[in-house]
Design a protein around this nucleic acid. Structure first.
Lengths: 210, 210
DNA sequence: AAATGATTTAACCATTTGGTCAAATCTAGT
DNA sequence: ACTAGATTTGACCAAATGGTTAAATCATTT
């Protein structure tokens, strides 16, 4: 079976299949994707898909699992550090928006599948130490409030706001482009500015100014 | 439970079909929905679907159009008023989160379809006066900045942040429940608190305190 | 080069699915 | 009651789709 480090290896048939499947599934979702289309994109016979991954469901599961776990690991690494809250927020928006600019389809893909099949995702999350995403951050926020440096906020709300502000613009990309009347280039520049603007926004919402 | 997204006349066959289609499409999306399933839910024959709506695509289009336009109208009404920025923000989170609590599937449904078929959505938006969503709000923010009451923010970023913070929690609902270890009831209470917490958050991010 | 096991292909298959059609039934106007 | 038009049904169809299978080909070992 494929693992996270094999995605890059473009030589093997298995990774060719995997990468083709990843592209198609990201674009069209589970029910929208066609096995024939994946085979075509991988440049192989449809039977070969079933030779490596016995069914569409299994192929999808491998693809989804790897993308989802990678995403979660990024969140965890960033928020589980001993860095200051302010630095975590700045680094998060910077890094995370940059990653999604290169993989703009991931948010809708993941959100859609989560809604379609919550059990799968919940099971996956149990395998990861997801509480690492917020454990330290929440403690830091509580301390900040006690010290009188931060407003009386609910840490869960802050975390959700941070995730919202970085993920949603990608999920709603096409709508926002239409709404704000931007072309692809302008929207990309908007996202570049957002890396610091969103961080400033959150920090100002959080901190009590002197 | 009756809410504004249901079409008024519940008696006619057409509205029965429409409501069944709305439920199934919201849950499973265009490619995931089955005409037979919609017919079953409407309590009618599958042929009747094709009698009223000639094809799956046409049925989907009617459903999507109505949901999307209603959604946009809400945004417009709220932001196009002469209310203060602060009131607009408070009213928006209050009203919008309440509506989505009753229709929690709409965000993923709409976001997914927007990504699948951006042209359809863009065409729809041209029919509405979408610029009304931000025209007055942006002017108010610019004035607030000039008066020294608001930080030097980019109005577009603020609008996107507001939309993110209210819509994303619904799109990511199942993931957030898993992440924060909440059951349905706890998550609903979380959303209730969010109506004011999110508004406070944005207002604090925006305003310069004395 | 023969044998063996892994990989790849082409031809099929069964089911699902969106859609059609002609007949039946119901409704309203005369 | 009769007719015309709208509504509803059940039987059917063609295409699409996920999946299977047996045979062919390739690579490796002996």
């Amino acid at each position: 079976m494929i693992n996270i480090y094999m995605i890059e290896n473009k030589d093997t048939t298995e990774s060719q299949i995997f990468n083709a499947a990843r592209e198609i599934f990201e674009e069209k979702g589970l029910s929208g994707a066609r096995m024939q289309e994946i085979a075509d994109k991988a440049g192989i016979n449809k039977s070969l898909l079933h030779y490596y991954y016995r069914s569409k469901e299994k192929l999808f599961h491998s693809v989804f699992q790897i993308i989802f776990k990678k995403l979660m690991k990024e969140f965890i690494e960033l928020f589980d550090s001993d860095d200051s809250v302010e630095n975590k927020i700045r680094n998060f928006f910077n890094l995370h928006i940059s990653i999604l600019q290169k993989n703009p389809n991931i948010p809708v893909f993941v959100l859609n599948e989560i809604n379609q099949n919550p059990e799968r995702v919940l099971k996956m999350m149990k395998g990861l130490e997801v509480e690492k995403i917020y454990k330290k951050l929440f403690k830091q926020i509580h301390e900040g409030i006690e010290r009188g440096e931060m407003r009386q906020v609910e840490p869960e709300q802050v975390l959700v706001s941070i995730l919202s502000m970085s993920i949603f613009p990608f999920a709603a990309k096409e709508m926002l482009k239409g709404l704000l009347n931007m072309d692809a280039q302008q929207f990309n520049a908007f996202l570049d500015r957002r890396k610091t603007e969103a961080a400033d926004f959150v920090i100002n919402a959080l901190m009590i100014k002197k």
